[in-house]
Design a protein around this nucleic acid. Sequence first.
DNA 1: GCCAACGTTGGC
DNA 2: GCCAACGTTGGC
Length: 150
Amino acid sequence: MPLDLLVIFPKPKIDCMNYWLIKSDPETYSFERMKKEKKTNWDGVHNYAARNHLKAMKKGDLSFFYESMNGEPSIVGIVKVAKEHYQDPTTTESWVWVDFEYVEEVKKPVTLKEVKGNKKLAAMALVRISRLSVQPVTKEEWDEVIAMSK
DNA sequence: GCCAACGTTGGC
DNA sequence: GCCAACGTTGGC
C-alpha cells in the first residue's frame, strides 16, 4: 500500500482492545449455563470499583470468565462484551449491567493456584485484589493466561 | 464452616 | 473526617 494511503487509512490499532476478568460463583451463574444461553446480562455487581470497570467496557472487549467458590477456582472460558453498560432496571440506584456473549471454553482451565504460581502474573488483580469481582487484565497477562490454557 | 481482607455505614 | 462495628466475598 502506498504511503499516502496508509496515512488516510491507518491500520486499525491492535492494542486498543481492553481485556477483563469477571467472576462468578457457579452456583449463582456457571460458565456451563453461559455456554447454553449464549448471552447474559451481568447483574448483581454492587461494588463501586467493580462497577467502574463495567462502565469502562467497550463492545467487543474480551473477558475471562472465572469461577470462584466451588471446587478449584479457575479461569474457565472467554466471553465478549455484547452490550455496553446500562442502568440496572431493577433499581433506581446507580448500578449498571453489561451484556456478555459466550465466545469459547478454554482447553484447560487455569486455576488460581497456577496463576499465583506464575511470576509473570504476580501483578494481576486476581492475585493482589482477590475480592474484586470485575477487574482489568493487561494484554501481557491475557496472553500469558491464554498460553497456560493450551 | 472458618476467617482474612476489604468495603460500607454510622456515631462521634 | 476518623474509626469501630458490621457485612460480604472468596480462598482454604
